[in-house]
């Protein structure tokens, strides 16, 4: 038969246990695996404090004459002799088709994957755009807008290689990359001059320079970052930048060619 004092003893033990658990939780103890992470599911960037890195990329040196492409191998491509996109330098040395991105500094933050598709078109027997960025898991739609057939051959090193045919005009296929990789080369083996580069990242802080050579990485949390600029023929340049709350920093990259 259980006595009154015995019942109190049990209640006291339970209360003490609950109290101990509460104290443990309040003091942030417990197993390391249960420690709160710095990787929220939603976008962790506080827009009230977010800053930006903006800048321009220039080419210094003798600009080689752009190589013309001979497209007579396929009459459907036209014979206008379009130019190679491997090195496009605009006014004031503005360097086009540079992929600029945050290489390091985001820690283990994770970011939501955009649902909207990124379009990679095959138009006039060229990939449009020539360089683009995409997040891991974000759908990329590859379209054949040409009245000829293409094969879409992506030869990633960490992402799975694939080679798919698009023999009919208007054909579309959707692909998602599974891991970050800078850069995944795309090519069409039918038209040897056709190539594109896709930068695959696990965050949204990337940009591709246009005709003016400008880039902007907006919405960055305050912190110190390694910014890399990648160009398909000129290689990479890296700089470190620290931005405070709501701060916008300018960054200039210079790629040097022959004669610089």
């Amino acid at each position: 038969m259980r006595t009154r004092s015995g019942i109190w003893s049990i209640r006291a033990r339970i209360a003490l246990g609950v109290l101990a658990l509460g104290l443990t939780a309040a003091c942030g103890g417990g197993a390391p695996a249960e420690a709160p992470t710095t990787a929220p599911v939603a976008n962790p960037v506080d827009q009230a404090t977010a800053g930006a890195v903006i800048g321009r990329i220039v080419f210094e040196g003798t600009v080689p004459a752009p190589a013309s492409i001979k497209m007579t191998a396929d009459p459907n491509c036209g014979s206008d002799g379009s130019m190679s996109e491997a090195l496009i330098v605009g006014d004031g040395g503005a360097l086009q088709n540079v992929f600029v991105y945050v290489k390091d500094g985001l820690g283990n933050l994770t970011f939501p994957v955009p649902a909207e598709m990124v379009i990679l078109d095959q138009k006039g027997c060229h990939y449009v755009p020539h360089v683009l960025g995409v997040q891991v898991g974000q759908p990329v739609q590859i379209v054949n807008s040409d009245a000829t057939l293409h094969n879409v051959h992506a030869a990633g090193k960490t992402n799975r290689e694939f080679n798919a045919g698009q023999p009919i005009q208007g054909m579309k296929m959707t692909h998602t990359f599974t891991t970050k990789e800078v850069m995944v080369p795309f090519k069409c083996d039918v038209h040897g001059w056709m190539n594109a580069w896709v930068g695959v990242l696990d965050h949204p802080f990337f940009s591709v320079t246009g005709r003016d050579g400008a880039f902007s990485l907006k919405g960055l949390p305050p912190g110190t970052y390694t910014i890399e600029a990648w160009h398909e023929t000129l290689g990479t340049e890296t700089q470190t930048v620290t931005i405070g709350a709501k701060e916008s920093k300018d960054l200039a990259f210079t790629f040097r060619g022959a004669g610089a």
Binding site: D74, N76, T148, L149, N151, H153, N163, G165, V190
Partner: peptide
């Protein structure tokens, strides 16, 4: 790799592949 499939060619049986599509690397 200009014809990505095999033994078919872009889905066609080899000998029925349209001649007008024999372009470039194909």
């Amino acid at each position: 790799l200009s014809v990505p499939d095999w033994p078919t060619s872009y889905g066609w049986f080899m000998f029925t592949f349209p001649l007008d599509k024999m372009v470039g690397g194909i």
